[in-house]
């Protein structure tokens, strides 16, 4: 019995450590949270869809006023398409929403920073990411979607806005 336990425990440990640091990549999910900008707070929702055959990722970010941006990234995080709303100019979407998505999904080579610092927790998943006065904290990891550790809380802090997102639901 003890041997079986150790074998099972070994498999679980191996599965946990084998997973990539940015575990949200490859998942479809909905995040909900609060955007703090200009001293005001706004509810915000992010819908993320991972397309398995192509490994593309589509993201729709919206507030109660409607969609802010619709973005499609290829498997390497490069932009395939980007549609900005009337509320935010496209260049701002590049500097904010697109940057946030790339950082959350771990495409840090595309962030345009000379140095990106990343820390992992004891399980090998990303805990923090920061560069050029911009930081993300990944926390409240839970096992979801086939024993994958996913961060349920993400806090983004930049020089002009703060964003706190909770993992609301997971898709297929």
């Amino acid at each position: 019995m003890r041997a079986v336990f150790f074998i099972v425990a070994s498999f679980i440990s191996a599965a946990l450590y084998a997973q990539p640091a940015f575990t949200l990549r490859g998942n479809s999910y909905v995040q909900r949270g609060i955007l703090e900008y200009g001293g005001e707070e706004f509810p915000i929702t992010a819908y993320v869809k991972h397309f398995k055959p192509s490994a593309e990722t589509a993201v729709v970010v919206e507030t109660q006023a409607g969609s802010l941006a619709k973005i499609v990234l290829d498997r390497n995080g490069s932009e395939i398409s980007l549609e900005a709303s009337r509320a935010i100019p496209e260049r701002i979407v590049h500097k904010t929403i697109l940057r946030d998505i790339r950082a959350v999904l771990g495409f840090y080579g595309l962030l345009g920073a000379d140095v990106v610092r990343m820390s992992k927790d004891s399980r090998g998943v990303v805990a923090t990411l920061d560069f050029d006065g911009y930081s993300i904290k990944f926390s409240d990891y839970k096992l979801r979607n086939g024993n994958r550790l996913l961060p349920h809380t993400i806090e983004i802090c930049s020089d002009s806005y703060k964003l706190k997102l909770i993992l609301a639901s997971l898709g297929n």
């Binding site: 609060i34 005001e40 707070e41 706004f42 509810p43 109660q64 409240d140 809380t153 706190k164």
Partner: peptide
């Protein structure tokens, strides 16, 4: 008034809108 639920509890928002 608007409220959002986080793991640590409800948060009341301020909104420019």
């Amino acid at each position: 008034s608007q409220y959002e639920k986080f793991p640590e509890g409800w948060k009341k928002l301020s909104s420019a809108a």
